[in-house]
Structures are given as structure tokens and as C-alpha cells.
């Protein structure tokens, strides 16, 4: 079975780039944007959900994103309850009920057209 990362559990302590500590459920879009602005290596990119399909294993989903200005097509296979942070909205997953059940993390339904926070490397050549 695929394990889910522990940091999505409600109450998990997250350290922002400026050192500030916040609970995972309290994070805002601005926290990611400001942390990326400080980072010398990472920058925020917007990844738009283009398709959501069933994955190879039960509960798995394949999400196709269009990433950044170049609209690079990227597919990721994750468990349906894996949360993504949607700009201006917050945590969202394909199975928000399961996410809430597993992590006690309030979660919206991830839909085609949602714009998720993602990272890329700065100055990649």
C-alpha cells in the first residue's frame, strides 16, 4: 500500500521560508508565494488540472497538469485523497471526504480547471 506523507495531518507544523511556523490547515496562498519569493532555488508555478483519470491501482488517480507559462504537460499518479493546494481556495483532493477522514484536513473537491500551487527550479537551463 502507498503511504501518504505525515505532514498533511491536521495540526502538523510547517516552517515557512522566513522561519515562521504555521499549522498545515492554516496555510494561505500567500504563504507559498512569499516563501517561494525568498527561496533562491524554487519558484512557484501554477499548474492547471487538465484531466483526472483512474489510476492503475484502487484509489489511485492520474492527474494531468498544464504547468507554468510553457504549459508543460505533466501527469502524476497519486492516491485520490492526496491534497493539492489550489490558488485562492486551499487544500483540495479528488476524494475530499477521504482526505478529511484520514488527515482531519478540511478539503475541497479537486476539479478540472483548478489551478494548483507547484514548484519549479529557478534558473533551470
Amino acid at each position: 500500500p502507498v503511504s501518504l506523507p505525515p505532514f498533511f495531518m491536521r495540526g502538523s507544523i510547517i516552517q515557512l521560508a522566513d522561519g515562521e511556523l504555521k499549522r498545515v490547515e492554516d496555510l494561505k496562498t500567500e504563504d507559498f508565494i512569499q516563501s517561494a519569493e525568498i527561496s533562491s532555488e524554487l519558484k512557484i508555478d501554477s499548474s492547471t488540472v487538465e484531466r483526472i483519470d483512474s489510476g492503475q491501482t484502487p484509489n489511485a488517480v492520474v492527474i494531468q497538469f498544464s504547468v507554468g507559462e510553457l504549459k508543460a504537460q505533466v501527469c502524476v499518479e497519486v492516491l485520490g485523497e492526496y491534497p493539492f493546494f489550489v490558488f485562492g481556495q486551499g487544500w483540495s483532493s479528488c476524494c475530499p471526504d477521504r482526505t478529511t477522514q484520514l488527515f482531519e484536513l478540511s478539503c475541497a473537491k479537486l476539479c478540472v480547471g483548478d489551478v494548483c500551487v507547484s514548484l519549479t527550479l529557478r534558473g533551470m537551463r
Binding site: 505532514f7 516552517q15 507559498f32 516563501s35 499548474s47 507559462e69
Partner: peptide
Amino acid sequence: NVEPRSVPVFPWHSLVPFLAPTQSD
């Protein structure tokens, strides 16, 4: 004796998927 439990602190970027490198010029 009760040993103090340390609370794990996770870096902000671990929550964000790393999707694709931006290919700038």
C-alpha cells in the same frame, strides 16, 4: 520519567508537488 517528545517541523516546500522544471533561456 517521561521523555520530552519533539514535534516534527516540516519545510513548506514538502507540501508542494515539484512538477516540471521551467526551461528559461
